[in-house]
Design a binder for these strands. Structure first.
Lengths: 395, 395
DNA sequence: GTGTCGGCCGTCTGCCGACAA
DNA sequence: TTGTCGGCAGACGGCCGACAC
């Protein structure tokens, strides 16, 4: 497939471009938000590198230089965002086309009105169930939790005995799946029978994976899957060494930054430890309009098993560079934290400023951008490098 | 998985390092040879790039610069070669650790004795069959070609009626597969029955794929597969954009060349259009000890359906750079050719010198290295760049 | 309210030789 | 010589309520 021109990367052949946004976001999870097309964003090569490391099961090697040297945060215009799903696995990912701003453009953009955007809406009429051994066995069908069936599926005609109907659901690839929905048994329960096992084997679902049904406002039934985090699920690519991949993303960013040209990245919400393309407004608010200090308490959102959110509390224990040698003066995971709950071993010991809500006794930013920047841009610097300590009063 | 140190990349966790070499080579095909560990090789970033393009279904974009600039051919020491097979697909690939030589080392290596190496031996007791619709259907078993069964399988005890035995074969991952081998029917034929369908579904084989049985010298039965070239089989990676991958391999080679440090590449014999790591001896012989010109006739080896080799004839129609802008003075696919047979549309219009056997009326190199190099190395140049025209008397 | 099981059909897997290419 | 088929027997898929947690 020969492409016309430019560094934009098209979807693979045959991929539907009209992928259902609601379903994509439901599969991606409640915490994932994609910045708006045309908006300004901050891109973190370190975070991108973490995603590659997670995808290849390979940490960044100590001997890979930051080569060629790239700023730890690039302000870009987001020219395009497209939602995709892997044909084989249904894994959701987004493709973004970014264009680094010139130093002049970076100065100007700081005075534009804030574009905080709307957080992505999770669908309201949906449910998500983790599959049991019985659900995935060939011996039977799928047991639908009662509240879920009543909320999400069309009502059954209870004059029939037993009440039953055919459900037609569409997945991320717009494929159609038909299920017999029946209410039977003693005690009575909702079941999906005929059609269910075809779906399970086609998607290669196993106990522990989750399925997700949405009843949208157009009265369509949508169907997504989320695979359980299996330790061995991500295979190292046999295409390119992980070292080359890390160098590749750095080189792509460096080349784009030096020529102010576009480059393309993929964001895998469920594979990546953290979002690494952040809306500029969110970044500015967190980094320049929020005062944090060691000992400060904060809250942070996490996703639950059932695809909803809950807050965990913690305390800031330090503020310093994650990787002082290769990424000095980076805001990426610059905050060291301790978590209140004892199961905290699963939560990362370092977070970025825009991921947390510091708890203060007084509102320090009554409305966005009501506080002026003392110094909107360091005169001599083309990027954020070196700005952190000056602006935040740290150290 | 945290690695100890260095830029060497280890196998994914759990991968057997003692992968059977015979079986790997049989799956890779008769034309694939891996240079010996410790030997000197020439690495072609262009060829590596072609492999990435083939794996991502994405041509190299015209706007990707050769960035940072790399020599089109790097002389390296081959520190390590390991054979691998993809856990999901059984696709064979090799991982190589290469270290570019310093300019001084490059000069010295030209005067070392030639190491032409032995071509990789294909096993003798083996057969390869393309699966029919009946072979892959759930309705029956596998029909073993008579000559194949008699040559490769242990002899049956014909005193039984019908004669039958259990065969145990091991695949690339050293997994065991059991088959009932029976000689029955009217007319009599060899069949694999019980166990066959488990294998077909586990490996997801379809009609058109091939299986390969080897009876080795340790009296073990080995079993490999080769999938048919399906147009849509290679998915674009959702990990890294293909542009970044191309930049990554160039950056990795450039960094290694500038620091004389090791780097790691993957070679997929059945995905890559051509080998891009060539033994130095083969390269030197083809480029400096063979005289070719436009109009010259040549032969070239190709693999057949049945995993043997045959020669096609052609005529040299031109000798020039494949990509003069980004890769000037490269020997990669520098020879334009026309093929004798009318089905020639499937064979590439450009080949490299070491892939062909020019037909001459007199032997121009009675024994390797009997001709001295007029000028072993261009004094001012650290690499092969600019050498081609001088040394070969072209243009 | 829901996960798993025994029971019980019905369909499809899978082994056989027939037959033809 | 070997690819495909009809025939047939048995295994397993898949629908049901029972039962327990």
């Amino acid at each position: 497939m020969k492409l016309s021109a430019g560094m934009d990367q098209q979807s693979p052949e045959g991929e539907k471009s009209c992928l259902n946004s609601e379903l994509w976001h439901a599969c991606a999870g409640p915490l994932v938000s994609l910045p708006a097309i045309g908006s300004h964003v901050v891109y973190f090569p370190q975070g991108h590198s973490e995603q590659v490391a997670a995808s290849t099961n390979k940490e960044v090697d100590g001997q890979i230089p930051n080569y060629p040297s790239v700023s730890p945060q690039l302000i870009c215009q987001l020219h395009n965002v497209t939602m995709h799903a892997d044909i084989e696995t249904d894994e959701v990912y987004a493709q973004m086309t970014l264009q680094p701003l010139s130093p002049q453009e970076q100065k100007e953009v700081f005075f534009l009105p804030a574009d905080l955007g709307a957080p992505s809406k999770q669908p309201t009429n949906y449910f998500c169930k983790t599959l049991t051994a019985s659900d995935t066995s060939t011996h039977g069908g799928f047991s639908v939790p009662r509240r879920a069936a009543e909320k999400v599926f069309p009502p059954l005609d209870f004059s029939q005995q037993p009440p039953a109907q055919e459900l037609i659901a569409r997945d991320l690839h717009n494929n159609e799946w038909k299920f017999r929905h029946i209410f039977r048994g003693q005690p009575k329960r909702h079941l999906l029978t005929t059609g269910w096992s075809v779906f399970v084997s086609a998607k290669r679902l196993v106990a522990g994976d989750s399925v997700l049904f949405i009843w949208n406002e157009k009265n369509q039934l949508l169907l997504g899957i989320r695979r359980a985090a299996r330790p061995q699920t991500v295979m190292p690519s046999s295409v390119l060494s992980s070292d080359s991949m890390h160098l590749g993303l750095l080189a792509a960013a460096a080349h784009a930054a030096s020529t102010n040209s576009r480059f393309t990245i993929f964001y895998n919400p469920r594979a990546s430890p953290s979002e690494f393309v952040i809306s500029l407004a969110k970044f500015v608010r967190a980094v320049y309009h929020t005062r944090v200090s060691i000992g400060m308490r904060f809250r942070m959102l996490f996703e639950t098993e059932e695809s909803s959110v809950r807050r965990y509390m913690g305390t800031i224990t330090g503020i310093c560079d994650l990787d002082p040698a290769r990424w000095p003066n980076s805001h990426w995971r610059s905050v060291k934290v301790g978590w209140d709950e004892s199961t905290a071993g699963e939560r990362q010991p370092r977070v970025s400023l825009w991921e947390i809500e510091p708890l203060t006794t007084f509102p320090i930013y009554p409305s966005p951008f009501s506080l002026r920047l003392k110094r909107p841009w360091p005169p001599g610097l083309p990027s954020f490098s070196g700005m952190k300590n000056d602006e935040m009063g740290l150290n």
